[in-house]
Structures are given as structure tokens and as C-alpha cells.
Design a protein around this nucleic acid. Structure first.
Length: 127
DNA sequence: GTGATGACATTGA
DNA sequence: ATCAATGCCATCA
């Protein structure tokens, strides 16, 4: 049992991902920031790919900072993520790089207050 | 132990 | 607006 680090980054990431509002999308860096590790954006994606965050994670709401859908292997088809987002009312646009979402309108506007709320909650629960 | 990999971010030209 | 270069850090072989 050597899962314990300073704190459980993946557990935090799971909570943050589950906290993404319906019909909104969040970026990897944003999640990493809310977890207290601004540089761990990559680990967020890695964790999602390996399913380290659990089963009920809305991974389709997590995209990169450019608004491009990752189109990762977690979904059966490349269109699947777009379909899921469209089902939540998020509009997507086709570009050379792939499906793009307008972060200005559908990006999860996480405020400083919410960030502090998360941090307090994490410290309170010891994770 | 070292080195490579990756669902990324940021900066500067 | 786009492109290339650089940094980042947990996991894997």
C-alpha cells in the first residue's frame, strides 16, 4: 500500500470532475489547478485514460485549453465525446484538429471562491 | 535505478 | 489568428 503521497491527487481530481456542471466543460489545467497542482494537467488526462478516477466520471466534459476534444480511446468512437456533449446542449464545431468547443460560452467558469471552497473541502476531509 | 510516454499548458515569434 | 519550442510530473517498461 504505497498509494499515499502528500495528498491524493486523483481523489481530488475525481471530486472536481464530478463537480463539473451539466452542460459545461472544463480544461485539464483548470482541474489540475483546483486540485492544487497547476502543473499536473497531464496527470489528469493520464488518470482519466487509466480509469484511476473511478467509473462514473464524466470524462467527456474534460478537454484541453484550446477547446479541442481529446477524442481519446476511452470512448468507442471519436464522435462519441461530441455526441455526449451535444446531448448536454454544448455546441461543437469541426476543425482540422477535431471537434472544438467554444470555451467562452460553454467553459466552466470556476471562480476563486469555488476554488477556495474546493481547497477547504479537501483539507477538511484530509485529501 | 534510468529513460520514454502522455486525453496538457504556456510563452514567444 | 497559428506554429514551434519548452516545461511539467506521475506512471510504465
Amino acid at each position: 500500500m504505497k498509494e499515499k503521497k502528500e495528498f491524493n491527487f486523483y481523489k481530488r481530481a475525481r471530486i472536481v470532475c464530478l463537480a463539473i456542471p451539466f452542460g459545461k466543460v472544463a480544461t485539464y489545467g483548470q482541474i489540475a489547478l483546483l486540485c492544487g497542482k497547476p502543473k499536473n494537467a497531464r496527470q489528469v488526462g493520464y488518470a482519466l485514460n487509466r480509469g484511476r478516477l473511478g467509473e462514473e466520471i464524466p470524462a467527456h466534459r474534460v478537454i484541453n485549453s484550446r477547446g479541442i476534444l481529446s477524442g481519446a480511446a476511452a470512448f468507442d468512437t471519436y464522435d462519441m465525446q461530441r455526441i455526449l456533449l451535444n446531448g448536454e446542449g454544448v455546441e461543437t464545431e469541426w476543425t482540422e484538429d477535431g471537434w472544438k468547443v467554444d470555451l467562452k460560452r460553454f467553459g466552466w467558469k470556476s471562480t476563486m471562491g469555488e476554488a477556495l471552497e474546493f481547497r477547504e473541502r479537501f483539507e477538511q476531509e484530509g485529501i
